[in-house]
């Protein structure tokens, strides 16, 4: 808890630093637009996103952010950053995904361990190029001095915050796209206005790097404060963030007919009394994705609790069970009228 607070504090500090007047600080090298726009840089350092790579201190052009409800990845700490080139702006699109100008980049570093023990495992970059977004995975070296392009992905032995020793999967380039794909094109997932804080958006607007303040009716709850939200809001936020990048029209799991986006309000589409289609043994012998009032009879929970490839959901990015997520979804299903 203390560690998490410290992390939040350090993020807030970093945010404050970049929210200061945007005068070029000549002591720092600018981000390499060539690296963002061309080729496949072999090393993370080539982008110059950070003044201190190991400490993950971003340059003045790179902004940290957090999501209200984040994607869970075996309990990894995630450090998220956005780079928007000088003289360009993000564009608001209602509650949805912010529009990122060509030339911008999203950077996400996965780490395990606290304080001095913190070990950076991988950094994923999403680069917005003239012909669309490109997703590339970088694997950190043992010395923690740099991360190297790992097109084919990797497996790394790590110990999760829950103390489980696992073989952690760094996705390959195609697997990046499996989640980041709508109608075959790579897109960002996280930075939707409804999953970002008011303050962060206001900060961007005031710094003139966001064209308008998006109007958001209902924000996704802060995950650590989800007890203050309704069980439905917590569960739907969790499913949106962890599942809906594939389980949506145009997504990698569109053929399932299951649509777990926050904005979907058709009960069958979000799984209520929806029969499985191509689940195979993933169904666990159960008849419905969500059986109202009966978590034990709901395929969705069965698959969240499984670790077996072919059964476990999400298919990628998970080698352990997210007990918090399971509890949130279970509470929601339990409270439904049968």
């Amino acid at each position: 808890m203390i560690a998490r607070a410290a992390l939040l504090a350090s993020l807030a500090l970093a945010t404050a630093a970049v929210a200061a007047p945007r005068t070029p600080q000549t002591a720092m090298a600018p981000v390499s637009d060539v690296a963002v726009m061309e080729g496949m840089p072999r090393l993370l350092s080539e982008y110059a996103f950070f003044t201190d790579l190991r400490e993950q201190n971003p340059t003045w052009q790179v902004v940290p952010y957090r999501l209200n409800t984040p994607l869970w990845s075996d309990g990894a700490d995630k450090l998220r950053f956005a780079y928007i080139p000088e003289g360009t702006q993000l564009s608001a699109d209602g509650e949805g995904l912010l529009g990122f100008p060509v030339g911008s980049a999203l950077i996400k570093t996965f780490a395990f361990g606290e304080g001095d023990e913190r070990r950076l495992i991988e950094t994923r970059v999403l680069l917005h190029r003239a012909d669309g977004w490109l997703a590339l995975p970088y694997l950190w070296n043992e010395e923690q001095t740099d991360a190297k392009l790992a097109l084919a992905g990797a497996r790394v032995e790590v110990v999760t915050p829950q103390g489980e020793a696992i073989s952690y999967r760094v996705p390959n380039k195609n697997q990046c796209k499996e989640c980041h794909s709508v109608d075959g094109a790579v897109v960002p997932i996280g930075p939707k206005a409804r999953n970002l804080s008011d303050q962060w958006l206001a900060g961007r607007y005031e710094a003139d790097t966001l064209d308008a303040l998006p109007k958001v009716a209902v924000r996704l709850p802060l995950w650590e404060a989800r007890k203050e939200a309704t069980p439905e809001a917590a569960a739907r936020a969790y499913l949106d963030v962890n599942c809906a990048h594939c389980h949506r029209p145009g997504g990698s799991a569109s053929n399932s007919g299951l649509d777990l986006r926050w904005e979907q309000d058709d009960p069958v589409k979000i799984g209520i009394r929806k029969r499985p289609v191509a689940a195979g043994r993933g169904s666990g012998g159960l008849a419905f994705s969500i059986a109202p009032g009966d978590p034990a009879a709901s395929i969705i929970l069965h698959r969240m609790k499984s670790l077996e490839p072919g059964v476990a959901m999400p298919e990628l990015g998970r080698s352990t069970v997210d007990e918090e997520g399971v509890a949130a979804v279970r509470a929601w299903i339990e409270g439904m009228d049968q």
Partner: peptide, 12 residues
């Protein structure tokens, strides 16, 4: 010895 993913080979 497969440890992850929903299929052997995926073509998109």
């Amino acid at each position: 010895g497969q440890q992850g993913a929903g299929e052997g080979l995926l073509v998109t």
